[in-house]
Design a binder for these strands. Structure first.
Lengths: 226, 226
DNA sequence: ACGCTTGCGTTCATTCTGTTCACCCCCGGG
DNA sequence: CCCGGGGGTGAACAGAATGAACGCAAGCGT
């Protein structure tokens, strides 16, 4: 099975490079282009006849057109290229419309590499199932394809850590700037446990630590997401 | 929440009636029209401005146009009406294209009522989450919406579980906030069995789990309905 | 410098979880 | 009537996740 060819569409140059780098960290994916406007995106897809791009990482906030309009134009032109929405737009109306236009998934900015990889790996798996030229025999095969693409996010935690607790800690952490003690107080979890999860987040590159000086006593350690 | 208004598109008159009857057997759904051609379908959707139809049950093999072309036309016209593909087309290429055009799901003919109801109920649940005018706070909320729409087909009561016991457990659970041990004590059922049923409820999205912190030792798990 | 003050980092007992496997009950066939 | 199988249950067990306790580390103030 050949690599998935990805077109990155993102107006902010730094982010565009970041998305490209992220994509290429996922095995089986290769970036075939980076563009910064809706016009360039549609030109790139038309020029190649759509045959050279399998997946578009599409930012929705573009300088010339909204990403949703790009999708609509693609569908109207008969393209069935797959689209992964990558955007900070949190409106449910936008999500609904994106779903109706067939985006494979919808990734909220800012995102962690883990979340990004999850979406890409799902897509790769869906593609493996869908790309065969054959036919499906039964409903459950179709069901499995749909579920692969859209099913709940999965990630494996090290032993001793619990999924639920991790979510609680992440929620309490919010925008960051909290010590383990503070996270513990907010969640009802003990400091020791809170710290355990915060340190895991650091080790998974999903949070960073920074000392908080200025007060007497040993400095506290602040945690901050991503 | 108002009913989901459904337009049935199916060229075979008997099947069209059957789909209508099936739809109306599912609570929360109402059929607002039955048409037999692509032309009539598009006319019905244009005439109502799309505002009166929430979901289209779309057969793909129509006398005048292919269902995929109907989808494309709808998207090109800016409609974001939701589409449930109902077809005997088993080509993976068709499935792929349908996904890219944003069909909510893909139901192979012939189908059982259970399979049909599953797809409709998923859609209703997705709609309940998506229709609020608010915004999503976090990635996992979006994930949950996508998973609701597309997740693995809902299973009936799995083997090893008993309807009677399930009711007992549900009754004992009450408003929730009980651990498996506590449910066991209340019902006279062993913790292991109580847990088996509670976990089933969680997997069927009829209950949620939350850890109970604060005491030393491994935390208990509280179950809470809905 | 030197202690003071405060929180960090770690260890380990504690408690409940998740799973396995033997049992029991019911049914259907020989 | 006895035997065999499959579904549903619970006793026992291995271990997973938490928090109390404690000693030490790291700035601050004098």
């Amino acid at each position: 099975m050949s690599d998935v060819r990805v077109l990155v569409v993102e107006d902010e140059p730094l982010l565009a490079e970041a998305h490209k780098a992220y994509t290429e960290r996922v095995p089986g994916f290769v970036v075939v282009g980076v563009v910064h406007t809706a016009r360039d995106a549609m030109a790139a897809l038309r020029q190649r006849g759509g045959a050279d791009v399998d997946l578009v990482l599409l930012d929705f906030r573009l300088p010339d057109l909204h990403g949703l309009d790009v999708c609509r134009a693609l569908r109207a032109a008969g393209s069935s290229v797959d689209v992964l929405a990558v955007t900070s737009a949190r409106d449910l109306a936008v999500v609904r419309t994106a779903v109706s236009l067939g985006v494979t998934h919808y990734l909220l900015k800012p995102f962690t590499f883990a979340a990004f990889r999850d979406k890409l790996e799902r897509y790769a798996e869906y593609r493996r199932q869908a790309l065969a030229d054959g036919e499906v025999a039964a409903q459950h095969e179709v069901d499995r394809m749909f579920a692969t693409l859209r099913g709940a996010a999965r990630h494996t935690l090290p032993k001793g850590l619990d999924e639920q607790t991790l979510h609680t800690v992440l929620a309490a952490l919010g925008d960051g700037g909290l010590s383990a003690t503070e996270v513990g107080r907010r969640t009802g979890i003990s400091r020791v446990t809170a710290r355990r999860y915060l340190e895991y987040l650091v080790s998974a590159d999903r949070a960073v630590r920074a000392p908080r000086y200025g007060t007497p006593g040993r400095p506290e350690v602040e945690y901050r997401p991503v």
